[in-house]
Amino acid sequence: MIMHLHKYEKIWLIFGIGSLIVFLVVLGYGAFWQGTHPQSHGVTIDPNNIESNEAFKPENLGLTKVSDDKYIVNIAASAFFYDFGKDEEGKTVNHIRIPKGSTVLFQVATKDVVHGFHVAGTNVNMMVEPGYVSSLETVMDKPGTYTVVCNEYCGLGHHLMYATVEVYE
């Protein structure tokens, strides 16, 4: 040792650093082998015209059933509103229903400033930044009604930006 360390301190540090290594290995295993990385796709989009991307054309917004238990939800975020498209009667959608156990791909893009997209109480939690598509696929297996909140400050109406997702049995 080039620096004197007390015996107990060595034990303490070996134990501490050992735990740290185990912890990082667990995180790394989860991220690289089980694919539990936080969302990071680097998919870009024209921030001035998000409709140039197929997913964010008005008719493709909201919930789309892809197959039996697979869904895609496309959302256009803008101050201070999540656009989930319109229903058959032409009314604005701000509540979607998904059967329990479905695999859901959430795709969000912003038309103006930075927003957040959090299905509160779950790990569907993404920053939504101009120029990028935020996306995360998850299995919704716990029934209940979840509040979708904008959790990144986007201006004076930030707290009025929300929707709900219902997972039903």
Binding site: H37, S40, H41, G42, N125, M127, Y132, S135
Partner: peptide, 8 residues
């Protein structure tokens, strides 16, 4: 960590 444009 939850930003879309940075490599994981």
């Amino acid at each position: 960590l939850t930003e879309p444009g940075i490599d994981p």
